[in-house]
Nucleic acid binder design. Structure first.
Lengths: 332, 332
DNA sequence: TATTTATGGCAACAATAAAAGATGTGGCGA
DNA sequence: TCGCCACATCTTTTATTGTTGCCATAAATA
């Protein structure tokens, strides 16, 4: 691999001259510039980005840390981020936090390998983030609140979204509403649960401990929870699943058992994943503004890099998408 | 940010000693080692990965280049790659080739920012890949064949998969089989088209130019193609769509028009995306072994990094997944 | 005295950039 | 008209980024 040294010596100039020429610095005469560029072409010279990053202490790269990388759920979020990073002439690289302490994500946070980071990965802990965030390395957190310098918070109004969903179920006349829960250590799940309880309370429905089922945010979890409900031979009116995947798992279990969804039981999910529209019956759910979230996150990073830290947490609103799984539009 | 220099001076040792101590080199006495580590802890020292990469000329990172990053389709592929990279103690970072010449992907290929690259992005051109591939930078190509040094080829048997799909349609008694095509510059599409034609030929069916519809690999494309078929008032027996998204788009159009899929018309897709199972009727399709492909790709990289370049292209077999959209299991 | 053990000095990695040096040109006074 | 200085233009020297690892060196042991 040819380096700038090779270029310089082929062109018969000093290394710095070559550097200036390659960076089109006006102090270099056109003649010399041409000579250097010709040498670079001839050697197929490619600047070593790592060396440049080291010297300039800047990578022109934003990192996106996801707990999974392979999750289909992030599609829109990534689009939003990409729109903004590209517009700012920055690169975006996505890394996974799988592997805990040894994950690529942790490495990227600890060593300053990007100029900013967007985190949506519950298995990255607060301490690490607080440590990593610096003036020249803002961190945007999308999955939990964290009040610390150089850390920016953007969140979806999970509580309000859940409230809307449950209110919708109540307005359809349902009284006994199961909460199909995600993992307890998930902040999103917690907030959705709070919204659920507030909606019950505001409608004078007493929450019963029997209404809480664990589904772990997975399709399998939802499936098994529904199986348990079926075994108890006492089906509830309605289910509010803390995410769509669990809702879809539950739908599957009910369908197998001959329970008619939308009639015998109403189900609402959360997230509005792509599948929600296609599952049968289609799933009523709470849509998160993922693309806006992504764009916002990237925007916040660039503002921060320009010295403007917007410290108040940003709360994005959700939207209730009514489909067939609550029966309200069954005959559509 | 504390550097190794700070650590060394706080510990009262030379920089090289600090470096050795931090890397747990046995030649340093435990006493000194402890002193250095204590200093590092106190300063919250984090090694600068960029400097290390520069010095060692190694990044311990594999890059995955995708044309979209946000495509849900890659989920399994990424899992496969990740399994292997993690097992080898390497990091995986995903970058997008959106933006053409200025994309992050191109930057990563040109400047040696990873120790190896896996490419699944049709908008990265051969020349660039040939240029980037080196002994210490193997490139695995997943979306086209390319015979060049240090370039490894892994492909799915698109031709054979298409053959199976069309043969299936023919075995169900269909004679007039539309090819719903992807973009012409897609190698995958080309191969699928070849498989389609071979199946027709082997079954003594003459291909007619009228059977070719353009769908561009998108749902919208499939939808519109189906609309056109409907307008012509002369529905074919069956459709072989070169990918699932187009098939799903077509299904939508037919459903809207009251055409019963599986009875009035049979449809087969390609890819077996997650939706295929959930769409109604569920879609018969050709499954690609994406996870195996990912694992294989990563494995090839590591073998290459160890000096073993396996030059023959690898061809992975597909599997026909029979669901409801051809009617064969309508009453399931 | 020879050998081992522990540590320090320094160059190297590839690039950038400030400062210093080299060269050429023009103006102006003697 | 010649000689000198000032200044502009272009190029090189040198320092710097944070880390690693070879080689040297000093002290301790055999």
């Amino acid at each position: 691999m040819a380096t700038i040294k090779d270029v310089a010596s082929l062109a018969g100039v000093a290394i710095s001259t070559a550097s200036y020429a390659l960076n089109n610095n006006p102090r270099i005469s056109n003649e010399t510039k041409e000579k250097v560029l010709a040498a670079a072409r001839q050697l197929n010279y490619q600047p070593n980005g790592i060396a440049r990053d080291l010297k300039s202490n800047k990578t022109n790269t934003i990192g996106l840390i996801l707990s999974d990388l392979s999750g289909p759920f992030y599609s829109e979020l990534i689009k939003g981020i990409q729109d903004v990073t590209i517009a700012n002439g920055y690169d975006l690289i996505a890394v996974s936090s799988i592997g805990g302490k040894n994950s690529t994500a942790v490495k990227f946070l600890k060593e300053k390998r990007t100029d900013g980071v967007i985190v949506l990965a519950h298995n990255i802990d607060n301490k690490l983030i607080i440590n990593a965030a610096r003036k020249d390395m803002p961190v945007v957190l999308l999955d939990r609140p964290l009040d610390s310098e150089y850390v920016l918070n953007i969140q979806v109004d999970n509580e309000g979204g859940a409230y809307k969903a449950v209110e919708h179920l109540i307005s359809l006349g349902h009284n006994e509403i199961i909460y199909l829960s995600g993992p307890n250590n998930s902040y999103d799940n917690l907030k959705r649960f709070e919204g659920y309880k507030r909606a019950l309370k505001d409608n004078k429905i007493n929450f019963s401990g029997r209404w809480l089922y664990q589904g772990n945010f997975t399709k399998e979890g939802g499936y098994h929870a529904a199986k348990v409900m079926l075994l108890q031979n006492d089906l509830p009116d309605a289910i509010f699943a803390a995410n769509d995947e669990m809702a879809i798992g539950a739908i599957e279990a009910f369908k197998q058992a001959g329970v008619e969804i939308g009639k015998d039981i109403a189900i609402v999910g959360f997230d509005d994943i792509q599948l929600a529209e296609y599952v049968n019956p289609s799933l009523t759910t709470v849509k998160q503004p993922m693309r806006e979230m992504g764009a916002m996150a990237a925007q916040q990073i660039f503002q921060a890099l320009n010295g403007n830290f917007f410290t108040e947490p940003i709360l994005l609103q959700t939207e209730l998408i009514i489909r067939e799984s609550c029966g309200s539009r069954k005959g559509k």
